[in-house]
Design a protein around this nucleic acid. Structure first.
Length: 267
DNA sequence: AAAGGGTACAACCGCGGTACA
DNA sequence: CTGTACCGCGGTTGTACCCTT
């Protein structure tokens, strides 16, 4: 007996969202929150699957999203987190404020993976690809690349095996490629040395950078304040929505959202 | 200028985990 | 304890856009 479909596939609409649908979804969530994704489409007057609404909101409409390409630091952070966590995109995303798991996953698949391969690094194991003597597909990759993404040495690196990380005390083989800036080194050294961080990530505890949008925004009422001082990069530009504006039904900003996309405001 | 190929990213699908009746 | 419904995650697909020829 299989699971029942989450929604009536004959009734729900699929495909790209229209501006009108976006507006309806934003309006509804800002006024009511998202108590139940399954019921939301009906209540919001959308012919969409609840799942689709949730995805649209979390990956695209959420006001705290940062848009645009990942910065070099963010990219480097993703690489390192991936080395530790594997394809745990949501965990990785939780360490990058304003970024979604989907966005990071896409960026990994389209950019980072290729860069690593180009550098002769296996994107999955984060180990050199040319360990075998006959692997000569990219002899210069480790010493000269146009991209300065590099693997950083670390004391006790981990690697993923069947979805679980195991300690590999002898795996720091990707060394000697450290041509990144001091700034990056600083950023990453903080990460490498932060055993607490990774034990935290591996636990089921909520990380500090997790977005406040889920569940905690009961009675959301349109109030959105900075929740995390960690947001120094993107968050510094985040808007602060006042309850007055929302309660006063000042939806002007939504029109802007529609005209330009919420992301154009640096949300 | 047009066609074809490549790329980026939004969106969908299916599954696992979990809460609850 | 079991079955069901829901949520969230990771993998995959579809398509619009960009670049090259």
């Amino acid at each position: 007996m299989g699971r029942q479909p989450c929604c009536d596939k004959l009734v729900v609409k699929k495909g790209p969202w229209t501006a009108e649908e976006d507006k309806k979804l934003i309006n509804f969530i800002l006024t009511n929150g998202h108590c139940c994704w399954r019921a939301l489409p009906k209540l919001a007057g959308l012919r969409r699957c609840g799942k689709s609404c949730r995805l649209r909101w979390t990956n695209y409409l959420r006001p705290d999203l940062k848009r645009g390409l990942l910065s070099h630091d963010e990219e480097q952070l993703v690489i390192d987190l991936h080395a530790h966590l594997g394809n745990k995109w949501s965990k990785i995303a939780s360490r990058l404020p304003g970024r979604t798991d989907n966005e990071i996953k896409n960026h990994w698949n389209t950019h980072i993976k290729k860069k690593l391969v180009k550098m002769g690094i296996d994107p999955m194991t984060h180990q050199p690809l040319n360990q075998e003597p006959n692997n000569t597909n990219n002899p210069q990759s480790l010493s000269s690349t146009s991209d300065d993404i590099s693997m950083k040495p670390r004391s006790g690196s981990t690697k993923e095996t069947n979805g679980t990380l195991t300690e590999d005390e002898s795996s720091s083989t990707v060394t000697g490629q450290n041509n990144s800036t001091d700034n990056e080194n600083h950023l990453l050294s903080n990460i490498y040395n932060d055993e607490e961080l990774f034990s935290h990530l591996w636990s089921d505890e909520t990380t500090t950078a997790e977005a406040p949008w889920s569940d905690s925004n009961d009675g959301f009422g349109g109030t959105l304040y900075h929740h995390d001082n960690n947001m120094s990069g993107a968050g510094a530009d985040f808007p602060i929505w006042s309850p007055e504006g929302i309660n006063g039904n000042d939806w002007t900003f939504l029109d802007y959202c529609q005209d330009f996309g919420v992301h154009d405001f640096g949300f």
